[in-house]
Amino acid sequence: MSKVIQLNEITKHYQMGDQTFKALDGINVDIDENEYVAIIGPSGSGKSTLMNIIGCLDTPTSGEYHLKDKLVEKMSETELAQQRNKSVGFIFQSFNLLPRASALENVMQPLVYRFIPQSERQKQALESLKRVGLEDKIHHLSNQLSGGQRQRVAIARALVTKPHILLGDEPTGNLDSKTTQDIMKLFDELHEEGHTIILVTHEQEIADHCHRVIRLVDGKVVADTRKKTEERLHV
């Protein structure tokens, strides 16, 4: 199986006055295609920083990060943006849908940055919304949708560019437990379909769905466990 993510001695340091804060302190992680990974850890452990680096929102202070075959290092803002558009599908805790835009327009948005013609954008966005079961809500504005529906739109938006990885930041943090189950079921299905999924979370029940759990403490990986097939949770 080919590697999607290779993190090699990744560090991220922040200068705070005289002190250097080591948000990440030598991370070595490889993630293969079609893995289903949870990154967990207490707050301040560096999981958000790690997610930002994986998601090409940030670059490491030192170390090498290969996303697919591309070395994400000292890229310019523009190159990082292009990389995000091409390789990463973001799913945020608070959905981050565009206000005053319909579900369809939201899902079409990432394709704008690929300079795809309008009709083609619409076609691909429709397919993606169909995949998350919202084909009857495409013209609803985000404030006309429930929390679960909003997150489905966000997932459709992440899927529409066919990225190498789906990157979720506490994707169910704002949802009730019933909706959480629905959304996690959707992630499970997407994984079955071959997507590579990385979820940053502090909820154990989310981590339970994943097949591999990476635990961070103080910017270091303290545990990296792959579940055997029989240990995996099936909903």
Binding site: T78, A81, R84, V112
Partner: peptide
């Protein structure tokens, strides 16, 4: 600001 952040996460370049 948040919308701009979101657009950037979706791949909008600074130029765009």
């Amino acid at each position: 600001t948040r919308v701009i952040g979101t657009l950037k996460a979706l791949g909008a370049t600074p130029g765009f």
